[in-house]
Write a protein that binds this DNA or RNA. Structure first.
Lengths: 146, 146
DNA sequence: TTTGAATAGTTGCACAAACAACTATATGCC
DNA sequence: GGCATATAGTTGTTTGTGCAACTATTCAAA
């Protein structure tokens, strides 16, 4: 009976993602305070577009681990905020390529700075090697279930 | 500059809670397949009521790390499903004490069995001591931010 | 004892997630 | 070429979340 030391009480907070919820709320508050008018979910999409523009909505689904309707609506809202533009692909007219506006490009530095800050606050008092273990465990969990 | 080894790419999945999302989806599928007509969020409320009945909505807020409106609506829906009942407290009429119906009591064993199963699947190949480290890190993160 | 603050819960609104059903375009096989 | 199938994206519905504003009840202090 493997991993049975993992008792129910702790199981619960694993499933509900208490820690990641706390991080997300902290980051959202930082965005609000700084006057960055975006949600964490919108940020998570922008994050991938900052790394590479012009990817498809399907690419964003894979990158953010969301389904297609979720991405459709996130892109809808980002378009309303004038942060991204849908551009129909020349080669394959089913595909929308998503591009950043200048406004979104300007956000990158501040948003990523606040994200870094949040992570640093979250990890105060945690030795680097323990963070690495945690990261690896979470990756295995993800791989086991995906 | 502490914890700077925690690079942005990994930060991202920490914040979005990729692992806990994957666990929650797997458990939800198990509920659906087994014909348990409840959501993960409803389960997380029932989980605390199975431990102790008759607690207040505010207690459920603290236990589940949710705000009051979220609990109001979760209890609304659980009441519609005939799984819980609100009972006004005798001592303090502001308080709703939440009690389980017989139907909800019957769900406990099966639901917790499926939750255990999910956790075991998630943690295949992860040595117990690494699970412990992960748990501790997530607890510190939570404490740092709450 | 009355009044002001704190606490418990509810409601409205905007945003997001999961699922199913749908449209449009592309691909592959006969 | 034409048809079945796969892929990309959209829309509708239900559920949940976070914030602000609200009601009702309790508590505490002048």
């Amino acid at each position: 009976m493997p991993n049975n030391q993992f008792k129910k009480g702790e199981l619960y907070s694993f499933i509900t993602g208490k820690a990641s919820t706390a991080i997300a709320r902290r980051l959202q508050k930082k965005f609000n305070t700084a006057g960055l008018n975006i949600t964490i979910e919108q940020w998570s999409v922008l994050y991938h577009l900052w790394k590479q523009e012009g990817i498809s909505q399907q690419d964003l689904c894979n990158a953010t681990f969301r389904d297609k309707p979720s991405i459709t609506r996130l892109v809808d809202n980002l378009e309303k905020l004038n942060l991204v533009k849908r551009v129909a692909s020349e080669n394959d007219r089913r595909i929308n390529q998503i591009y950043l506006t200048k406004q979104a490009q300007k956000l990158q530095e501040e948003a990523m700075q606040l994200a870094d800050e949040t992570l640093n606050e979250a990890l105060i008092g945690v030795p680097p090697e323990r963070v690495d273990v945690c990261k690896e465990v979470l990756q295995i969990v993800y791989d086991n279930l995906k």
